[in-house]
């Protein structure tokens, strides 16, 4: 009974919102769009403060203790110390320089998980007024403009207005880890080929709206699970109760 109540409380916790049903979206750049069921997604990106609390509870994820198998040398490298972000960075800004392993560990510690690429794409297809704004020129232009510009220093979350689902900062702040990020376009040095990039790009090039999705696919496929990047953060998802 107690557990049941607890689950209700978590599910209803204000920082998550229900997403779906919505338009079919690309499953990490796959050729066919898929339908995504309903799921819960964090309203905001995980902040440095949030992540510092996690590191405090799970010291094995401190940058001086985390295993090299799970994080690269740049893991949390912008923090003043192994425990805290320090004065030089905005603690309310999204945490970046975290590996996929670390992001997953964080989410699972909250009883959550990383969103799949399709879930993320579904949430991110919405503008403030439409569930599917992928063909909306000004929506796409704003996304592409951010992709094209050299990054600015990260500031606090909540920089953008919540979209129709109630989620903030899906575009224009950082890239985000997803569970199935490494569906590789081209990866292996021997069997891979530039042609896949060309031809894959060609498939969606006719519709300029797809370019934004294609750039995310390219970005994700360049990652490895240990990588920690200054422009890559995350948020968590969760299944809806049946």
């Amino acid at each position: 009974m107690l557990a049941f109540l607890l689950i209700i409380a978590l599910a209803a916790s204000p920082e998550m919102v229900t997403i779906g049903p919505g338009p079919a979206v690309a499953k990490n750049g796959g050729p066919v769009d898929v339908d995504v069921g309903r799921f819960l997604l964090d309203v905001d990106l995980v902040s440095r403060t949030d992540f510092a609390a996690f590191v405090g509870d799970h010291p094995l994820w401190r940058r001086d203790r985390a295993r090299a198998l799970f994080v690269d040398e740049r893991y949390l490298a912008d923090w003043a110390s192994a425990r805290a972000p320090g004065e030089d960075v905005d603690p309310a800004a999204p945490v970046t320089l975290v590996s996929w392993f670390a992001a997953r560990a964080y989410c699972s510690a909250q009883g959550k998980r990383l969103p799949t690429s399709a879930e993320w794409e579904l949430a991110a297809a919405a503008s403030t007024t439409k569930k599917d704004a992928r063909a909306d020129p000004s929506f796409v232009a704003a996304i592409l403009d951010w992709y094209g510009r050299p990054p600015a220093p990260l500031r606090a979350n909540h920089r953008t207005q919540a979209n129709l689902w109630g989620v903030r900062d899906l575009h224009g702040v950082v890239w985000e880890w997803v569970e199935d990020f490494n569906f590789a376009l081209v990866k292996d040095g021997r069997s891979g080929d530039g042609g896949a990039l060309f031809c894959g790009a060609g498939a969606s090039a006719a519709d300029p709206a797809d370019y934004a999705g294609f750039m995310r696919l390219a970005f994700r496929s360049s990652l490895e699970a240990r990588f920690a990047l200054p422009v890559l953060g995350f948020r968590c998802a969760k299944d809806v109760l049946p």
């Binding site: 198998l69 199935d180 490494n182 590789a184 080929d193 896949a196 894959g200 240990r226």
Partner: peptide, 10 residues
């Protein structure tokens, strides 16, 4: 997903 488990598109 995960280390080394990489789906390849050719």
């Amino acid at each position: 997903v995960g280390v080394g488990a990489r789906r390849t598109l050719l």
